[in-house]
């Protein structure tokens, strides 16, 4: 009984800041400016199909790159016993302690037409590269900002694998490649799943990264939604509808992924 009363502040908090806004979003999505019921907000969205596609594609690419970079790193760190590990963890965490905007801005300076990298290329006598304003730059920004969210969950899952299970596999004749493929990798999938969730969702809804590094040419869902609420195209009803659809798509894909993860398939995600 006593325990239940302790939950009241949280329930209140959730009702106020999670449930209520969600209801507002739903209400806005299905109404017109005058307050009548409508589905126009959804049918109008068709014109933004390209933005949807680009957002999910770039977020997918960023997630993929994060897995490809983050998994080996996490594996290496989790199996590493020395002091190197603490140092490496610190280096991975360090950027996260800096302001998100600042981090992203710094990439602007690095990638600009007359930025750091191009100056470097020029002095070596190589032609300049136009990276800023491309989808690649956006993906780069996403990977840079969200990579730790991929590394950490994978690392902690691999680290918790019982070393005796690995010894058992060796004992039964598995060489290191087989140990990885048959034991370590399948046991690390829950970490990959949460890593994917933690990278994909912020990537698909980001607007800072695309605005700064995409140079206005690579409009993402986040930008689109922001424009509906704060920008020139003020239309919170459309913005709510887009948010709602995005949320449903994300929820469905996460649900599907978790369903796969529980099965016994080994390489579901890769």
């Amino acid at each position: 009984m006593k325990h239940k009363s302790l939950a009241i502040p949280y329930v209140g908090w959730m009702a106020l800041f999670v449930v209520a806004p969600l209801i507002l979003v739903v209400v806005y999505a299905f109404t017109t400016r005058e307050g009548g019921f409508t589905l126009d907000n959804f049918s109008n969205m068709v014109q933004y199909a390209g933005v949807f596609g680009r957002s999910f594609l770039l977020a997918f690419l960023a997630t993929l790159v994060c897995i490809l970079l983050g998994y080996p790193l996490a594996l290496l760190l989790a199996r590493e016993q020395s002091r190197l590990r603490g140092m490496a963890m610190l280096l991975i965490m360090l950027p996260m302690w800096m302001n998100f905007l600042l981090r992203t801005y710094s990439w602007v300076f690095l990638l600009e037409r007359n930025g750091f990298f191009n100056t470097l290329l020029e002095t070596v006598g190589l032609p300049k590269l136009d990276i800023i304003g491309t989808p690649a730059a956006v993906v780069l920004g996403m990977v840079y900002n969200f990579l730790p969210f991929m590394v950490l969950p994978i690392f902690s899952v691999i680290e918790k694998i019982d070393p005796r299970v690995i010894e058992a596999a060796q004992d039964l004749g598995a060489n290191s490649a087989q140990v990885f493929r048959r034991v370590i990798f399948p046991l690390s999938l829950p970490g990959v799943l949460s890593g994917v969730t933690m990278v994909f969702i912020p990537s698909v809804s980001t607007f800072v990264i695309s605005r700064l590094l995409g140079g206005g040419m690579n409009l993402l869902l986040g930008d689109l939604i922001e424009m509906q609420f704060l920008g020139s195209a003020y239309n919170p009803h459309l913005g709510s509808a887009i948010s709602l659809v995005m949320m449903v798509i994300v929820l469905v894909s996460m649900g599907l992924m978790n369903r796969f993860g529980e099965g016994e398939g080994e390489a579901v995600l890769l």
Binding site: V165, A168, L187
Partner: peptide, 9 residues
Amino acid sequence: FQKYALFPH
């Protein structure tokens, strides 16, 4: 092994 160490997956 002492604690069996079966493959949980």
